[in-house]
Amino acid sequence: MAFLELEGVAKQFGAQTVVDDFSLAVGKGEFISFLGPSGCGKTTTLQMIAGFLDPTRGAIRLEDKDLTAIHPAKRGLGIVFQSYALFPHMTAAENVAFGLEMRNVSRADRAERVRAALAMVGLAGYEDRHPRRMSGGQQQRVALARALVIKPSVLLLDEPLSNLDAKLREEMQIELRQIQRTIGTTTILVTHDQNEAMSLSDRIVVMSQGKIEQIGTPQETYEKPASAFVSQFLGKTNDFAGAIDRTATPALLVVGSWSAPAPAGLSGPVTVSIRPERIGFGDAGLGAKIVTRIFQGNHWLFQCDSECGPAIVIRQNDGQPQPTEGEAVRLTWRPEDMSVRARTVA
């Protein structure tokens, strides 16, 4: 049974539909990411779950109870805002204690839980600091502690890490994941950073223009993208125009000079997507010329000019000699590493 369920949720601002037909079932303890470009409606969806916005259509249920009928103050969800929205006139401890105070937790109990919450996010000893005297990462932890201390049924995180620098963000990602694993709170994270979504979540909801493009595990969305949008958005990819020839026996999938037995189902013009790290250099295959070769420490990045347009190839720096700029090469890949979609010819 789904713990949190969104069914056909839509939101309109005037005539503009910002979220449309959003259906998702979140299991208890699951870590879900909403991933999509800016303006695709991630925050809007999160705010509808939180109750700050009312859905135009659709239902939101928590443990089979209609959530939209409950006032946001009574939903008992923990929310970390993109701007943290800490109370600047209160110390870290007072910030964390606020939600407990609203729940009439006794003073002694409160102090104990606040201390434990701050310790959990690694801020023991910072109880009496005011938010403006804390670094971005520390403020973010206070916001997390404030949301977690009320033992929320669902934790909603709206791009909580986007204000941090790369190193701190990575640290916080690891910490966030560990905390979530330990206490097992069902979590929804909004992000437009695909690495963040992949490294943190059990499942990713890829969104574009208010619609769900794909729901799947990080591996599924990366390796079996359901649409061109998903494959483009999740990391680099090569899209080649190919065709399936059903007149040949056995039927062939042809991409330039590369060919393989055709997969079942499709025929005619197709688009073939292959991740750059799945392409190798071989004796036969798609003809290409190396345009630039970039050394990036643990791997090489090649930009090629192939029969089917530009292509990128990533090779592990395993000490083997690599082709040089201007060299003619053949690109090959295993059929199971590509995803094939029908292509409409204009």
Binding site: A50, F81, L86, F87, P88, H89, I150
Partner: peptide
């Protein structure tokens, strides 16, 4: 004020009067 500050207080269970008295007024 942070535009989300009232929502933050609300999500923690504060009613409108508490929000004005405890969050908005001091700021």
């Amino acid at each position: 004020l942070d535009p989300q500050i009232e929502n933050a207080a609300m999500s923690l269970g504060a009613g409108p009067i508490t929000i004005i008295r405890r969050i908005i007024m001091p700021q």
